[in-house]
Design a protein around this nucleic acid. Structure first.
Ligand SMILES: [Mn+2]
Ligand SMILES: [Mn+2]
Ligand SMILES: [Zn+2]
Ligand SMILES: [Zn+2]
Lengths: 154, 154
DNA sequence: TAATAGATGAGAACCATTCCAATGTAATGA
DNA sequence: TCATTACATTGGAATGGTTCTCATCTATTA
């Protein structure tokens, strides 16, 4: 699906909830849709500083929290103390480097079955009414393996 | 395995790493091993206040961070702003209530296979050298379902 | 156009966690 | 046993990401 179609579809979700599509919300969403870098508020602020120099930090937090509330975006922690945000258009999970904090997307055929199985088992056992899940796998990214001398640079 | 056997085994891990088994570390570990309430630092502090009234908050943080570094304890977030800690003796994952924050343990036969499969797939796809994973499932706990009128109290 | 509700922005406030320096205590070795 | 060294605890200060407050601004509705 084209990036602007994703945008339109997502913005419609906001409209459906009587939320206004402001320039700030539009530009933040566009940034998230077009970048897969799992940015922090600070990174978003720096990246959008040229287009909207006066955008307040509160606005970025408010906007991202709104997106999270509507399940358009997920929050991630990589241990660096700040929250990372991820436009969650396509189901996937994350591998997070315990050394440098790098977060990469992962998915594979059959992943959604695994996910669904986990949710069903959990509902059955715990009695919870399931609304979602987070899976994260931790380890050393390829670059840190080299940096730390664990893997040879070939 | 008896609780004191678990304690001994865990304390030995500290000794093996040349870490001293102080009264503070001992009492905090004992609390975690014998409670499955996924406590915060504040909860631990309140619970142990009678036994060690002068224990500093820094000590609790230091101790828990040490345990986490040695993979004896895992950290959990439930959205209430503070970190929750869990003695991770037996592999399991968590169901977290999005309304009240309640965290419950879940496991089932075959869970470790699911877990292992996820780690192997991830290593293969991402090139990461895997050291662990976190799985969390979100939803409404049974009590909140009733409280919110979603499920009838039978 | 008037009235209302929703959104932004600057800075203050919050608060969980970390940092720091002083003090205390266990391990080591002569 | 004494001296030395390394590890740990403590209380308080500092940090810093996030939330809160409120005046201002803008979109929506009637
Ligand atoms: Mn992602
Ligand atoms: Mn648990
Ligand atoms: Zn890395
Ligand atoms: Zn609940």
């Amino acid at each position: 699906m084209a990036s602007n179609a994703v945008m339109e579809e997502t913005l419609q979700i906001l409209k459906d909830h009587k939320l206004r599509v402001t320039p700030q919300r539009h530009i933040i969403l566009a940034y998230l849709v077009s970048h897969h870098n799992h940015p922090t508020v600070e990174i978003i602020r720096d990246a959008l500083g040229k287009e909207l120099p006066n955008m307040g930090a509160s606005t970025i937090y408010n906007t991202l929290n709104t997106f999270v509330d509507h399940h358009l975006v997920v929050e991630l922690q990589n241990g660096d103390g700040s929250t990372h945000y991820d436009y969650f258009g396509t189901p996937h999970y994350h591998a997070i480097c315990t050394n440098c904090g790098r977060i990469v997307d992962v998915t594979y055929p059959g992943f959604s079955d695994t996910e669904k199985g986990l949710e069903e088992k959990t509902a059955e056992i715990s009695g919870y009414m399931i609304s979602g899940n987070h899976m994260e796998v931790y380890g050393l990214c390829p670059e840190c393996q080299i940096k730390l001398g664990i893997k040879n640079n070939e």
